[in-house]
Computed example of a mutant assay.
Amino acid sequence: MRKKTYLKLVEYQTEQVERHLSEVRSIHKEMKGYKHDFHHHLQALKGQLQAGEIERALTYIDELDCELMNVDTLLKTGNVSIDAILSAKIAQAKAQNIAVTVKASIPDSLTISDVELSILVGNLIDNAIESCLKVENERFIRIYMAIKGKMLYFSMLNSSGNKKKKKGTLFLSHKKGIHGFGLGRVEAILKEHGGWCKYNSEDGAFTSEFLVPAIE
């Protein structure tokens, strides 16, 4: 039974990493495409202005403005991996009409691996998105990340439905299959590094926190 559970956890971790890497590649590909197109937009505007077609140029700018409003720019926290992870998850949340705010400042070099970071942050935000989808009115996720001493601190508040039931140190999830190992995997990684996590559920809101050594 333990071996079967372990194999499920390994399968889950592999699935998570592959999915997150795919999300990161998608974001960078999209941003590269917009950078490439920007040159053509400038050339088109230059031609219109040189031809004296002011109204046409203004219309073109308005169309570009509307298009850019729908572009999710990559976050800049100071850590490339966290930028990519958060940007991918924020794009998912916004697609579900969830308002997301992030305040984060993280150095680029951390002792915890990118894979572990992806699993920690990705799992918690996935659970926050799942929780928000059960709310009909205000959907929000508020994230704060910073270095405290030599520790990486993560805090998140998200909208939720009714107070969740707890089983041991974890709250029950509606996810099926290997997805149910999400929070357990988070705890395992944090325990391995000498960190801790804490969750709190109330009617209408859910909070997640973790603190883990990340600086030598």
Score class of each variant (00 low, 15 high):
Lys4Gly: 00
Thr14Asp: 13
Gln16Leu: 10
Glu18Gln: 14
Arg19Gln: 12
Arg19Cys: 06
Arg19Lys: 15
His20Thr: 09
Ser22Gly: 15
Arg25Phe: 14
Ser26Tyr: 10
Met31Gln: 12
Met31Ile: 13
Gly33Ile: 05
Lys35Ser: 08
Lys35Gly: 03
His36Tyr: 13
Phe38Gly: 05
Phe38His: 12
His41Ser: 09
Leu42Ser: 09
Ala44Ile: 11
Lys46Cys: 07
Leu49Trp: 05
Gln50Gly: 07
Glu55Val: 08
Tyr60Gln: 05
Asp62Gly: 07
Glu63Lys: 11
Leu64His: 01
Gly78Glu: 04
Val80Pro: 03
Ser81Tyr: 06
Ser81Pro: 01
Asp83Cys: 02
Asp83Met: 02
Ala88Gly: 14
Ala91Arg: 15
Ala91Trp: 00
Gln96Asp: 13
Thr101Arg: 11
Val102Arg: 08
Pro107Glu: 03
Thr111Lys: 04
Ser118Pro: 07
Val121Trp: 02
Asn123Ile: 04
Ile125Lys: 02
Asp126Trp: 00
Ile129Ser: 00
Cys132Tyr: 01
Leu133Pro: 01
Glu136Phe: 08
Phe140Ser: 12
Ile141Ser: 02
Arg142Pro: 01
Arg142Thr: 11
Met145Lys: 09
Gly149Thr: 00
Lys150Ser: 12
Lys150Met: 06
Met151Arg: 10
Met151Ile: 03
Tyr153Asp: 09
Ser155Trp: 10
Gly161Lys: 05
Gly161Met: 04
Leu170Met: 03
Lys175Tyr: 10
Gly180Phe: 07
Gly180Val: 05
Leu183Glu: 04
Gly184Pro: 01
Gly184Gln: 10
Val186Ser: 07
Glu187Tyr: 08
Ala188Ile: 10
Ile189Val: 14
Leu190Ala: 09
Trp196Thr: 12
Cys197Met: 15
Cys197Ser: 14
Lys198Ser: 13
Gly204Cys: 02
Ala205Leu: 05
Ala205Ser: 11
Val212Asp: 02
Ala214His: 02
